[in-house]
Amino acid sequence: QEPLTASMLAAAPLHEQKQMIGERLYPLVHNVHSQLAGKITGMLLEIDNSELLLMLESPESLHAKIEEAVAVLQAHQAME
């Protein structure tokens, strides 16, 4: 699968752009946290597209964000 680029994204309708990024992000998140993959991906998709593209290219920064998302979720669940 070819890497997702900014120009590929720009050619897509706005509402499709997050879906396109999500389709790339989801399997990577699933590798780390299969149970929470949908939720974590949804949280990450609120980040700017330009930053998300960088994260797709950088496993280290992606993993850091995934861990951050898990920590936020756990803190949120602990409060309820």
Partner: peptide, 21 residues
């Protein structure tokens, strides 16, 4: 530092994803 991630974000549903074997 407070995270900017939102725990109430909508869950993402992939169109096409198969479990890796």
């Amino acid at each position: 530092r407070k995270s900017t991630l939102n725990p109430n974000a909508k869950e993402f549903n992939p169109r096409s994803f198969s479990q890796p074997k």
